[in-house]
Each structure stands twice: as C-alpha cells, then as structure tokens.
Amino acid sequence: MTERKDRPDAPAAEADIGGRRGALAALGAAAFVGMAATAEKAAAQAPRESLLRTVISRGRLIVGTGSTNAPWHFEDERGQLTGMDIAMARILASGLFDDPNKVEFVRQDPAQRIPNINTGRVDIVIQFMTINPQRAQLVAFSRPYYAEGVALLTSPRSRFKTYAELRAAGAQARASVLQNAGADALVKDALPDAQVMQLDTQANVIQAMESGRADVAVVDLSTVRWLVRRTPDRYVDAGHSYRSQLYGAAMRQSDPDWLNFVNAVFNVNMFGHVSEAYDAAMKEFFNIDPRPRTPGFPPI
C-alpha cells in the first residue's frame, strides 16, 4: 500500500492560553510525557520467552489488522472479516494449532501497526504493510507474501479510458491519488504531465474518478483488479502497472524463534506442500493462478 499521512480531521484542541493556567497545563503535560516514556521503556524491555511459546500456550493467535480495505482486510456481506491479510493470519493459525479459526483479530488504524507490535498488544501485524528500511529498524518483517504494484483505474464513462489515451492527453489528464509524501512522484512515474489531486482515503480517490472530478485514479494494482472483477460495468483497468512493493507481516524484534516460525509457515505455504489456502486466497482476491511448484533446485 502506498504510504499515507496521518489522519487529517483531528478535532481542534481547546488549548488554554494564558499565564498560570498554561503553565499548570504544561506541568501536567510534562508529568504525562514522563509517565508515557516510562511506560514505553517498560514495554520495550522484551520478556525473555519467545512469542512462539506464549502463543502456543495461550491457544490462539492475536493478529493486528484493518477492516476497511478490500481485498486485504474487510468485512464481507455476513459481517465476517476476510481478505488476503486475513487469509495469511489463518494460515499461521493452522500452522500453530491445526485450526485456522484459532485467531483473534484486533482492528487497528494503520498508524497503530508498529506501536501495537512494540507494546505487545498483538503478536503480529498483517495489514498490507510495505517493507521499507525505516520500518525495518523498528520491527522484524517476515518474508514478503505479496508484491503490490500501482495501477490506473478508469471507468467506462471516463474521458480517457486507456493508458495510451491518458498519456496522450498530457496536461489535460487529472489524476487522483492517496495523499502522502511520495504521491506526486507516484503519479508522475506513469503520467508525467498529468494534474495531481491528493485525497485522504482510497475510497475518496476512486469516488473522485467516478464522479468525473478526476480522469484516472492511481491506486494499488490489487484494488484495480478487485474492482474490475467485481463490477466490470463500473470500472476499467487502464492497462498499465508499475512499481513493485513488498508486503510483509511485522513482528517484534529480538525474537528469532517467532520470526523463523512465521517465515517457515509462509515459505511452506507459498512454495512448499501446504499450499491450498494460499493458492485459494490468491485466486479469490487477486485472480492470480498458482505457479507450478517443481521439485529439484529450491525456488527460494
């Protein structure tokens, strides 16, 4: 998933400006910060026992994930959590307990992905998390379980439906994209001359294209595929994808047993003999057929 800024609409803080009361508030805030820092230090001192043992003796896996982004983590018509991230979590649960249902999902905002790992609120985070060096300094990433690309989404009613048309339109083309630091560059990589419109959620980005305020929505390739498959009368894949981002699961650092276990399960499911669940998920959510797994020289 492309990086995103912090959530925008924070309610205005009713700060009290003025003399003594401000000083008192500052004092209180300082005490607060001190308390928070102590708490953080306490949490950072990882207990000796590996999470692997803890999880096994607990009898269920606690996974941090989201609930608002198809096809990764979302609620289906029956209100059940489903998606690729959910599928990976169930694969892990099967590896731990032979039961894909022994997993508890903690819904979290993307801003909480790293904090919830490091404060021990969840055992692992599987939430379309792009592996990057900055994050890798704070958490331990599993091997990648998906390579995400960026693609262009248009609709049958768009002025320019295909990549060629969009390219040709030059500065006439208006592109909507999720707001974040690299958003402009992301669009320019595909459409160097297009106007860029940054919006706060993926859904709004797509809405802008549908309502005609933008000609093309620059979104994740998986989202494009998902939407075009489900509602081909509403959406069109403009036919150009680029970039490749690796998604991995995040765990706390200094716990080699846990990390190795997760990697082993992922490897076995992706390249080994226990591959049904993974293949089914790839097909259901991305319409990607499984690769042939040939014996002999190992693929990884």
Partner: peptide, 25 residues
C-alpha cells in the same frame, strides 16, 4: 491542574496515551 491539562491535550493524543500507557502501568 487536571482539568487544564486534559483540556489542553488533543483528544487523539489522549486516547492513544491511555490506550498504550495504561497496560504498561
């Protein structure tokens, strides 16, 4: 001090601090 402090902290910060801070305590 309590009243002025909590009112001066943005709600989001307050929620996250309680959410992460209390378990550590």
């Amino acid at each position: 001090v309590f009243a002025d402090t909590v009112r001066a902290i943005p709600l989001i910060v307050l929620i996250f601090t309680v959410y992460y801070g209390l378990p550590a305590l």
